[in-house]
C-alpha cells in the first residue's frame, strides 16, 4: 500500500505572520519556517499504520519553495520512505485551484492508495484542499477525521461536527484529511536524521507534471486588494469611583457581551 502524505512548510506559529503588501504573498522571511504541525500529525497517522502493517510505503509530497527541502527532509527523518518536492518559482503565489491541480498531477504520477492531508493549514487556512484533490483524482473523500483506521482496502474514521460524531468510511483509493485531535508526531531521532539523507528525494517542476501555471483557460482566483491588519485600538478603561461594577455591567449589556 502506498500512502502519500501532503506536508506543508509554514511560518512558525510563535512568530508574527505577515503578508508582503507588494506581492500579496506570505512573508516567509519574517519568521522561522517549520513543518506545519497538522502535516506532522498526518504523517504520524501514516507512520503508525506503516509500523503495524506490512508493505506500507509512506511518501511525502509538498509544493513549496526550494528552500523548504530541509523542512521536508524532517519528514524523512521521522520515517517516511521518500519525498517528492514540487519546487518551481512559476508556482509562487498559486491559488488553491492551481495548488490542487499541481498536487493532483504529482499524486497521479507517484501512484497512491491513500492520500492524507491536514484539515486546515496554519498559514493559508483554506481548509478545502483535500476535497479539491479528491474531485480531481475522482476518488472518495473523508474530511476532518479525528480518528482513522486503515485496512488493506478501506479507510474509516470519526468525523466530529458541532452536535454529533459521524462514522465514515470509504473504499481505497481515497483522500482523507485529519484534525488536531490525532496524536502528536514522533520526534525524529539521530538515526532517522542520518538515514534521511540517503532516502529518495525527487524535485519536480510544474512542467515535469504537465502543469502550465499561467493557463488562462482554467478558472483562477484573483486577489484584488490587500491591506495591513488594522492596529489594535486601545480598550475602554472604566475607573472605579464606587460604581465600577455597574459600569462594567452596562458596558457588557451595551455591547451584547452579557
Amino acid at each position: 500500500m502506498k500512502i502519500i502524505v501532503l506536508v506543508k512548510e509554514v511560518p512558525d506559529t510563535y512568530g508574527e505572520r505577515k503578508l508582503d503588501l507588494e506581492t500579496g504573498l506570505a512573508d516567509r522571511a519574517a519568521s522561522e519556517s517549520v513543518l506545519d504541525e497538522i502535516s506532522e500529525r498526518a504523517l504520524e497517522v501514516a507512520l503508525a499504520h506503516a509500523g503495524s502493517a506490512d508493505g506500507v510505503e509512506v511518501v511525502l509530497l509538498s509544493m513549496a519553495p526550494e528552500s523548504a527541502a530541509a523542512t521536508i527532509r524532517k519528514g524523512l527523518a521521522m520515517g517516511a520512505a521518500s519525498a517528492v518536492h514540487i519546487a518551481d518559482p512559476a508556482l509562487a503565489g498559486a491559488d488553491l485551484g492551481l495548488t490542487a491541480r499541481t498536487l493532483a498531477a504529482a499524486i497521479r504520477r507517484t501512484g497512491f492508495d491513500l492520500v492524507i492531508t491536514g484539515n486546515l493549514s496554519t498559514d493559508g487556512s483554506g481548509g478545502v484542499l483535500a476535497a479539491m484533490l479528491a474531485e480531481l483524482l475522482e476518488v472518495p473523500n473523508a474530511t476532518a477525521l479525528s480518528s482513522v483506521e486503515i485496512t488493506a482496502d478501506s479507510v474509516s474514521g470519526t468525523r466530529s461536527t458541532d452536535d454529533r460524531a459521524m462514522r465514515v468510511s470509504a473504499p481505497l483509493p481515497a483522500v482523507i484529511s485529519i484534525t488536531e485531535a490525532l496524536p502528536d508526531a514522533r520526534l525524529p531521532n539521530f538515526k532517522g536524521i542520518m538515514a534521511a539523507k540517503k532516502k529518495p528525494f525527487e524535485t519536480l517542476t510544474a512542467a515535469d507534471l504537465g502543469i502550465e501555471p499561467q493557463d488562462l483557460s482554467v478558472a483562477s482566483s484573483i486577489m484584488t486588494a490587500i491591506a495591513e491588519k488594522p492596529p489594535r485600538t486601545a480598550g475602554v478603561k472604566i475607573t472605579d469611583e464606587g460604581d465600577g461594577g455597574t459600569k462594567i455591567a452596562e458596558f457588557l449589556i451595551e455591547n451584547r457581551l452579557a
Partner: peptide, 15 residues
C-alpha cells in the same frame, strides 16, 4: 551542515 543543523534541531526540541 544541513545534517548537523537537523541533529541540533532535534536536540533543541528535546531540551
Amino acid at each position: 551542515t544541513e545534517e548537523r543543523e537537523a541533529l541540533i534541531a532535534a536536540v533543541r526540541e528535546f531540551a
